[in-house]
Simulated assay, not measured.
Amino acid sequence: MSNEYRIALAGNPNTGKSTLFNALTGLRQHTGNWAGKTVSLALGTVQHKDKTFNLIDLPGTYSLFSNSTDEEVARNYIVFEKPDVTVVVLDATSLERNFNLALQVLEMTTNVVICINLIDVAEEQGIQINERLLTNRLGVPVIKISARNKKGFPMLLDTIDRIVTGVIECNPVQVSYPAEIEAKIKIIEPKVREFVGDQLSARWVSLRLLDGDETLLNEISNRVVAGGGLENEYSKALC
């Protein structure tokens, strides 16, 4: 059994995501392009206990709706490359704004850690964050850190370790949408599952079809369903 695991770092710009990446990997990093895109990804390694965590610093984005190359690269890496764990870095002083991206990631993949950075700045501003309550409500571990001061790193790495070894089982919360949208998901989802199986979240793909995401449809056709197959479901979703 391999002791190497891929850990993706996602987050809004200016959340300290790259600061965390640099602090964890030090000089053990390099850059490379991915999936034929011009966007460079920073890659680095962290040794923890008997394991090697290969970190991928995804482009900073406010959403994963493929409205830009950065969003498309970040989304496609999480969905199609299937990292062992996705760490979503949030700014402790702007949680409400940052949670938009976090909830999107929770719809896309299961093994997620919510990493609340800048906790020292938040505490200076009198902001108190109950990570245990958030963990219970989100269904995934929530860890508070200060990347600048390297505070909380042992807990973060131990949590990643416990996820990849199966000690922690993540059960991300399912976001509920208005009744009309949920009704359409209920119709589309079984058909989508016939095409994607357990390779992708059928519910998430259904949501993206309802939103008219043609770029995702093309990616699925190229990567998952050779020769297409979801075009009819896409057409139905737009009706």
Score class of each variant (00 low, 15 high):
Asp120Met: 09
Met1Asp: 15
Val39Asp: 10
Ile181His: 00
Ala226Thr: 03
Gly36Val: 05
Ala10Val: 11
Lys49Met: 06
Lys191Leu: 15
Glu81Ala: 15
Ala8Ile: 04
Ile129Val: 07
Leu103Ser: 08
Lys150His: 06
Lys49Ala: 09
Ile168Thr: 04
Gly166Trp: 12
Gly139Pro: 02
Val224Pro: 12
Ala10Ile: 09
Val175Gln: 09
Asn22Phe: 02
Val164Trp: 00
Ser2Cys: 10
Gly44Arg: 00
Ala92Met: 04
Asn111Ile: 10
Pro13Phe: 09
Gly16Tyr: 01
Thr109Tyr: 08
Asn218Ala: 11
Thr135Lys: 03
Ile168Asn: 03
Ala237Cys: 03
His30Arg: 10
Ser235Glu: 15
Glu219Val: 12
Leu138Ala: 00
Glu123Trp: 02
Arg162Cys: 10
Trp204Val: 03
Val87Ile: 13
Lys82Thr: 12
Val112Ser: 06
Met1Gly: 15
Val39His: 08
Ile56His: 04
Thr215Gln: 14
Glu214Lys: 07
Arg193Phe: 14
Gln104Ile: 09
Cys239Glu: 10
Pro83Ser: 07
Lys17Glu: 05
Lys191Ser: 15
Lys184Pro: 01
Ala92Val: 01
Phe153Met: 11
Ile188Tyr: 02
Tyr234Ile: 04
Val225Met: 10
Thr45Asn: 06
Gln128Asn: 14
Asn54Gly: 08
Pro178Phe: 02
Ala10Gly: 11
Asn12Leu: 10
Ala183Val: 02
Thr38Gly: 12
Ala237Pro: 01
Leu103Asn: 09
Gly166Phe: 14
Pro59Met: 10
Phe53Asp: 03
Asn76Gln: 12
Gln128Met: 15
Leu238Gln: 10
Glu124Pro: 05
Leu20Met: 03
Ile56Pro: 02
Tyr77Asp: 12
Asn149Ser: 13
Lys191Gly: 14
Met155Gln: 13
Arg137Gly: 11
Val85Pro: 06
Arg6Met: 12
Met1Lys: 13
His48Gln: 08
Leu200Met: 15
Asn232Ala: 10
Ile181Phe: 00
Glu71Thr: 08
Asp84Tyr: 00
Lys236Pro: 00
Tyr5His: 10
Ser68Cys: 06
Asn130Arg: 11
Thr52Gly: 06
Leu207Lys: 07
Arg162Glu: 13
Arg193Ile: 13
Ile56Lys: 04
Leu238His: 01
Val46Arg: 03
Tyr77Ile: 12
Ser206Pro: 07
Ile129Leu: 04
Lys144Pro: 09
Ile160Ser: 06
Glu233His: 04
Gly229Asp: 04
Ile145Ser: 01
Val192Arg: 09
Ala92Asn: 01
Lys236Phe: 04
Glu107Val: 03
Gln128Ser: 15
Val196Phe: 15
Thr110Trp: 09
Asn222Val: 07
Lys51Pro: 00
Gly139Asn: 07
Ala35Asp: 14
Gln29His: 08
Val142Ala: 02
Arg132Ser: 14
Pro83Ile: 06
Arg162Gln: 14
Met155Ala: 14
Ile7Thr: 05
His48Trp: 11
Ala74Gly: 13
Lys184Gly: 01
